[in-house]
Amino acid sequence: MKPVTRIQSHTVVLPTRDIDTDQIIAARFLTTTSREGLGKNAFYDLRYDKDGKEKPEFALNQPEAKGCGILIAGNNFGCGSSREHAPWALLDFGIEAVISTEIADIFRNNALKNGLVAIVVDDDSHQWFMDNPGVELTIDIEDLSITGNDGRTTEFSMDGFARHCLLEGIDQLGYLRQQQDAIAQFEENRSWKP
């Protein structure tokens, strides 16, 4: 994984609450066996009508949304299925960070493991982001802060380990494999065997 220390981009706002992973990447696109190329199908049914034409009213289709890497989402983003295809699709689509008032557990875990920065902020800051689509923000993972181009700063918190892995680009499998001895000892010593 590439280290992620700072993200600087314009925002695109998707105000709907409870955007589930089925909407991020529909089930019919899950029959893939690779993690590449899912971006073209991200939000497919929200982006396109039944004839495959772009829906102009959808936020991510608007001309000013092109190239925006920070998604401001409604409450409880990423609920539903555990499919990691959701963060893979968002990253491939060009989204580098998602900011909401609440982000579903499994989605957040999956996102951070892939370098997609999932951030929960307070209601007031969130409302300001919602009301100001397209602003340029700088997300600093070192300082855990979001700064607007007007100087407005919002702080957020993040699990220390997740932050460390992002900053250093650490692959968690490598970290787990360093625990091999402890794992073998646990298997040896437990009072019952599964």
Partner: peptide
């Protein structure tokens, strides 16, 4: 509980997961 595909790899390789206590 449900896990993502990266974690499926973790369990296949190490039979363990990195978890914060809920």
């Amino acid at each position: 509980f449900g896990i993502g595909t990266t974690e499926v790899g973790h369990v296949l390789a190490t039979q363990c997961l990195l978890q914060r206590k809920p």
